[in-house]
């Protein structure tokens, strides 16, 4: 199993506020090569689930395993290396670094992992930009790209280190309908071509059709899943 969550509970306890139980005893297994769509209302715990899978937040209790390795038994260095090499992340908000060009943004994960030499990294980033149809924008800064183009660059960046898992958090929620379809088709194409495991939070039920299976969440639990 690529990702396993066992009886995971996540409680946010902001200062001077009531604690929020975002994930409530959830267990989930995602096999290699899966394309999972997670659906649910706002506050259902979808984003927290994704963050738990990526090790971006510590579970209050329970275990998060990636390739059988408990994420929270690893030190910061090992956990960061695992995130860098095995997980690609597509965020809901604009997440490109404004001071870097599209090409440099795509190559950024290599800065932390150093798997490829500088020239090789640039070639790989160029190939990924070509894959997402933005070859002509390689030297453009994010402010000169449309929201759809920016999100394509983010997808390319997520694939830079050839990850095993691609986590996407409502990657199309800020885009118009046509661009949304283009991005979703891109995910489908990536899944088909590379076999990467995709876990994607979607904001509308009609987007579920792009995935191979879907999960419905409510109140930090899985309501149903096929």
């Amino acid at each position: 199993m690529l990702i396993s969550l066992k009886d995971v509970v996540k409680i946010y306890a902001p200062a001077k506020e009531q604690p929020v139980r975002a994930i409530n005893g959830l267990s989930l297994e995602v096999p290699r090569g899966d394309f999972v769509a997670i659906l649910g209302r706002s506050g259902a715990g979808k984003t927290t689930l994704l963050n738990l899978m990526a090790g971006l937040t510590r579970p209050t209790s329970g275990e998060v395993l990636v390739e059988s390795a408990n994420l929270w038994s690893l030190g910061d260095r090992e956990q960061s290396r695992l995130r860098n090499r095995k997980i690609g992340f597509v965020f809901q908000f604009p997440s490109l670094l404004p001071s870097l060009t599209a090409l440099e943004n795509v190559a950024l994960p290599n800065t932390f992992g150093k798997r490829l030499a500088g020239d090789e990294a640039r070639v790989r980033a160029g190939q990924l930009l070509e894959m997402v149809g933005l070859t002509d924008k390689r030297n453009a800064f994010p402010r000169h790209l449309s929201a759809g183009q920016q999100q394509r660059v983010v997808v390319a960046r997520a694939l830079m280190n050839q990850p095993d898992i691609l986590l996407a958090d409502e990657a199309t929620s800020n885009l118009d309908e046509q661009t949304e379809q283009e991005i979703m088709t891109l995910f489908q194409q990536i899944h088909a071509e590379t076999g990467v495991t995709i876990v994607m939070v979607v904001h509308s039920s009609y987007l579920v059709r792009y995935a191979t299976r879907s999960i419905q969440m409510a109140n930090g639990k899985i309501l149903s899943g096929d």
């Binding site: 260095r77 090499r85 992340f89 994960p109």
Partner: peptide, 8 residues
């Protein structure tokens, strides 16, 4: 974002 990309 940098942390998510693998920065320690």
């Amino acid at each position: 974002v940098l942390r998510a990309l693998g920065s320690t």
